[in-house]
Amino acid sequence: MTLSDIAFWLFSAGAVWTAWRVFRTDSMVRASFALMLSFFCVAAILLLLSAPYLGIATIFMMAVEMMVMALFMVMFMMNPAGLNPMMMVHQHKVSIGAGVAAFAGLGAAALLTDLPHHAVAAGKPVIRDLGTELLGGSMLIFETAGITLLATMVATVVLSSRSGRFGAADEGSRPPGLEPGGKPAGRAPERDSDHSHHAEHGG
């Protein structure tokens, strides 16, 4: 067992353990950054596989992505600090099914594909080769995937930002009372023509 074998197993264990922590923690921010650590372990394995650009770019991209994800989740979930405990897992049956199917699919793909098993020759211009691949033969695939992902993100934000937690955001929504049947918590929505809202503010 060489040193890089030991490193591979350590990083693999780290990736699995931090990924497991994503579902065991009770905070969205902690979950995001646990996922980030999991990806960092994968990035380290990429470095071991002589893919320096992909490895470091994974660290770079995941740092930004998980930061944005934490921010957006907190924004949409109305849990101001992300420190409030909350249940991080839901739809148990569906997600277990999806998880098992994804694991089986990806595992089968990894085991059945004829992956190259020879070491990368020292001095091989791996970054140049990667660039030629990305901007050559596979350019159409990557650009299509990029545009599709961007469109999906914009559409998701547009769709999800309208429905607020207590009703449609563009109509003004009111939170429920602090006690059953009590006064609504927080501010009342602005209504220019309605003067009775002064009474609602009162107290």
Binding site: P52, I56, A57, F60, A63, V64, M66, M67
Partner: peptide, 28 residues
């Protein structure tokens, strides 16, 4: 003297944002 030095620096920049956020967030 890695061939991806600028990318490594970029990763450091990105992680600074995470670290500063966590410094603010963790105080509760």
């Amino acid at each position: 003297d890695i061939a991806t030095g600028l990318v490594l620096w970029g990763a450091c920049e990105a992680l600074v944002v995470v670290v500063v956020f966590l410094n603010g967030w963790s105080a509760n």
